[in-house]
């Protein structure tokens, strides 16, 4: 059973079919890329899958502990708790909080603190804080963020902010992580570092990754399968080599029908 199954998913905004009858599946451990020209509906599709917007029709099913769970009619925080984390196209960090607080804010559903123990600072509170502190330290270390742990997120360089955002998504302990244009606005060195980081998400954290990206070299290097979206429809899907030779994709990207 695939980890994520999307069947005939559609979203209509007034007269615009932003996403139309999309079928896709993501298997456990895979790295799937979602590409397409600007305005093709990629981010809308992400928003439908993560519960930010409700679809007009269709179904989304996530496999949780071997059982299929529908993601429809669930709020984003419930989707996140089920194991689907995401980053945003325009970075959305908790700007005035420190990197450590950013990470810890994404862990709140993984433990519980009793109200009385919290306000009276009973030993149970310190025990929980130590537990969360341990998780945080390990994650900061893994993402090479220990040195900036106590700086406000807003004061970090762009590439580091991206890393914090990915670390924050990992902090929710997901099975599946959605990255929305993680390489946008990055220079070649930063992109190379990001590529390595995404590979580590799979090898070290055993995450399944779905990636929206415009940087084709990154996509071709990382993705095992690619879905190509245009005008809200999946126009092609296959391995990177298949996609590179697909006539519909070439037309979508380069235009067609005009002969010089």
């Amino acid at each position: 059973m695939p980890l994520l199954t999307v069947t005939a998913l559609s979203k209509r905004f007034g007269g615009l079919n932003a996403v139309e009858a999309v079928d896709m599946h993501v298997d456990e451990g895979e790295l799937v890329a979602l590409i397409g020209p600007n305005g093709a509906g990629k981010t809308t599709l992400f928003n439908l899958l993560t519960g930010v917007t409700a679809p007009t029709s269709g179904s989304v099913t996530l496999t949780v502990d071997g059982k299929p769970v529908s993601l429809l009619n669930r709020a984003p925080y419930q989707v996140a708790k089920l194991g689907l984390a995401r980053t945003f196209q325009n970075i959305r960090l908790f700007a005035r909080l420190t990197v450590r607080e950013n990470i810890q804010a994404a862990m709140t559903h993984r433990y519980h603190e009793n109200f009385l123990a919290t306000v009276l600072r009973l030993p149970a509170y310190y025990k929980k804080e130590a537990l969360v502190g341990g998780w945080t330290d390990a994650l900061l270390e893994a993402f090479d963020l220990t040195a900036v742990a106590d700086l406000a997120a807003a004061n970090l360089p762009y590439g580091t902010q991206r890393r914090v955002e990915i670390a924050r998504a990992v902090a929710t302990q997901p099975k599946l992580i959605f990255l929305d244009e993680p390489a946008a606005g990055m220079n070649p060195e930063e992109t190379a570092a990001l590529t390595a980081l995404i590979q580590r998400l799979r090898s070290e954290f055993h995450l399944t990754v779905v990636l929206i990206e415009h940087d084709m070299s990154l996509v071709m290097k990382l993705a095992e399968r690619i879905y190509v979206l245009e005008h809200g429809k999946v126009i092609a899907h296959g391995t990177p080599t298949e996609i590179q030779q697909n006539q519909a994709v070439i037309t979508a990207y380069l235009g067609g029908g005009v002969h010089a």
Partner: peptide
């Protein structure tokens, strides 16, 4: 929005 996406 980000808080909600983080399970809050």
């Amino acid at each position: 929005i980000a808080a909600e996406a983080s399970g809050i």
